[in-house]
Amino acid sequence: MKVMMNTGRTVPQGESVERKHSPEYESAASVCFIHPVDMMVLGIEDGAHIRLSGSGGSVVLTAVASETVEQGSVFVPLGPFSNHIVSGETHCTGMPDFKSTMVEIIPTEDPVPSVAELMEALGGVRYAH
């Protein structure tokens, strides 16, 4: 299913943003709010894992049913998870399309990665605090 991805701040994500190693931050930032009708179309339940792929890359997130997002669009808290999907194109403005990236969603059994795993996959070295 192709949908428009919006990103932004949420209170749980903001509360733990300075503790990015914490389980609270990881679970607050790795969710994808999606309309219940779109969930039905995908054949998934609340809490299922979905893979979002966009122009910058792809990542596995936890689906959360929400009627505050419109059908055909999803909302992901800003952070390392949503940014795994966005490309670096800025159309000469310096600003990527953080709030308007088209993404393809498929249900998956793959686990949701941790922030450290995401960074290791890019060539980083995990720092365990």
């Binding site: 990015k20 910058g56 890359g57 800003l78 952070g79 390392p80 940014n83 795994h84 999907i85 966005v86 490309s87 670096g88 990527p96 922030v115 960074m119 890019l122 060539g123 980083g124």
Partner: peptide, 11 residues
């Protein structure tokens, strides 16, 4: 920036 930049930039 690793949290707030798009993946190709973090790479």
């Amino acid at each position: 920036p690793a949290a707030h930049f798009p993946k190709p930039c973090v790479e």
